[in-house]
Design a protein around this nucleic acid. Structure first.
Lengths: 228, 228
DNA sequence: CGTAGTATTTTATGTGATAAATGATGGCTT
DNA sequence: AAGCCATCATTTATCACATAAAATACTACG
């Protein structure tokens, strides 16, 4: 029933490296379009080029970096259209996986999600943007995890990672924190009450609205920049 | 407008290797669960292990192989449930990308798709299963390509690759060739007439039914095997 | 003065040999 | 026969070196 998740799955160096790089990118330490020079990074992380290059391929698969043959790897830079596409994909996938998850959620799953939501609210009150964004992603994943849909989950996780930074920006700049908080609480309640359809609908609207508002904002910003 | 597709994009050895391995897997030369021993493969393909391992990571990202740390790479083996999930994802993604593509289809795109469909029908008549499956995938991609949704397209391409072999099996064993042929012709006509909604609906039903029938078949086969 | 073409330099990419870590195997002891 | 230990195969990682491609600087020519 639990398939491969039960095995220990030791991490390889390439995977650890990918993890550190991922968090550095998501934390904004490595900005959009920044070159990832392999010699420098390898020395910095204390590993050789081989696992580093494998980590590059992993991150490329997640869409976090772009590898141009013979030109190296750069942190992925996205147009507003591409951001919009990422959100569109979330709109398609998240309600679907949630629909599969709701009937399988255990009490334990629900209290876990509730705990994450608590931390989320605390971080929000303390304006701790860093952990706030991370917990936002974790909250969603906690609800989706029990769906037992490995491929969908991996996809959604990757999409959440990639949109995470933009979601933060959108919430900060459009002041939608209260609304997000309200919707998260409501979502958890709907899941607890096993109102699958309503929960799926809420997530769909939630994500669609976030995406719409963000893309809108980015276009306005782009227009403003053009003027200057 | 054409973005990165216009540049030459020289292939790196890792990518060429990934390509050959991919086609070998899709052609069934490498069976499910088969071990991919890197020394052997590297010698066989005349490359060193570094690009080979990068190719492994690429294929892992596509879901075609599974890499277990310190245990090596094997051709991915999927349960009926996982196959079902892949088809479910296609049901979500293909109608969506088609919706975006239909308004942008040029005459050139349409005649290209028609040409592929011709070849498809020929291959079908000659029972050339190999090219038949390939053209099936190409036909879908020809219609989806103009949508200008790079992420969705990459996803759909990968899903088509992974389900390709099963689609072939399903069509061969359930005798759905005529039906598939009819539906493809109809789909092309709907696209030409710009009936976006109807076209999307047709694809949705087409994929869902294919998936349903295939999973059904696999379950029956599994049950039969249990008996023996 | 500008431009095309060439040389230099930087960076990524690939190879081979080698060492360390891990999982699998088979024999040995109790 | 069950559990433990040594051995072996394989993956994983490092290193030093070679090649290839792209970016930049330079030079000669119009």
């Amino acid at each position: 029933m639990f398939a491969k998740r039960s095995t220990v799955e030791r991490k390889t160096v390439a995977e650890s490296v990918a993890e550190t790089l991922r968090s550095r990118i998501l934390a904004g330490e490595l900005g959009e379009g920044e070159q990832l020079r392999q010699e420098v990074l390898a020395a910095d992380l204390g590993v050789s080029r081989i696992p580093l290059r494998e980590a590059f391929r992993l991150l490329e698969g997640e869409g976090l970096i772009t590898i141009a043959p013979h030109r190296g790897a750069v942190v992925a830079v996205r147009s507003p259209e591409e951001i919009g596409e990422l959100f569109d994909l979330r709109v398609l996938l998240e309600p679907d996986i949630l629909r599969h998850a709701v009937p399988k959620l255990t009490e334990r799953n629900l209290s876990e999600a509730a705990a994450i939501l608590d931390g989320y609210n605390t971080a929000l009150a303390q304006h701790d943007v860093q952990t706030w964004g991370r917990l936002n992603t974790q909250f969603h994943l906690a609800l989706y995890g029990p769906a037992e849909r490995p491929r969908s989950l991996a996809l959604v996780r990757s999409l959440l990672d990639q949109t995470d930074g933009y979601t933060r920006m959108q919430l900060l700049l459009t002041g939608g924190q209260q609304r997000a908080q309200r919707e998260h609480t409501e979502l958890l309640e709907l899941c607890r009450a096993r109102k699958t359809g309503a929960a799926a609908k809420l997530v769909e609207d939630h994500v669609r609205e976030a995406g719409r508002s963000l893309v809108d904002f980015m276009h306005k910003q782009a227009a403003a920049k053009k003027k200057s």
